[in-house]
């Protein structure tokens, strides 16, 4: 390959391996994120909430009740 001398194959291989590993890592982490979000959405769709999220969700409803009573 022009400009990279007689050992161009080693240089190209080094950069290719780096690109494949880094891109593979990015794809794997993003696929893992998509999988975790899908599972979490599925669990929440079945009505499951962490206690802290459930408390947050019920708080505005309780706060609105007196106003509704007026």
């Amino acid at each position: 390959m022009a400009g990279l001398g007689p050992h161009w194959g080693f240089i190209v291989a080094a950069y290719l391996v780096t690109a494949v590993v880094v891109l593979g890592l990015i794809v794997w982490i993003r696929a893992d994120l998509a999988a975790q979000r899908r599972i979490l959405k599925d669990l929440e769709a079945r009505g499951l909430r962490r206690r802290s999220d459930a408390a947050k969700a019920s708080a505005p409803a309780e706060a609105a009740m007196p106003a509704e009573a007026e």
Binding site: I29, R30, D32, L33, L40, L43, E44, R50
Partner: peptide, 23 residues
Amino acid sequence: TLHLMAMRNEILRRRIRTLRMLQ
């Protein structure tokens, strides 16, 4: 960047585990 992305995934994984235990 990749470390923070992986941390986000791990936090979500632990939330899923908590929800499954509650279930």
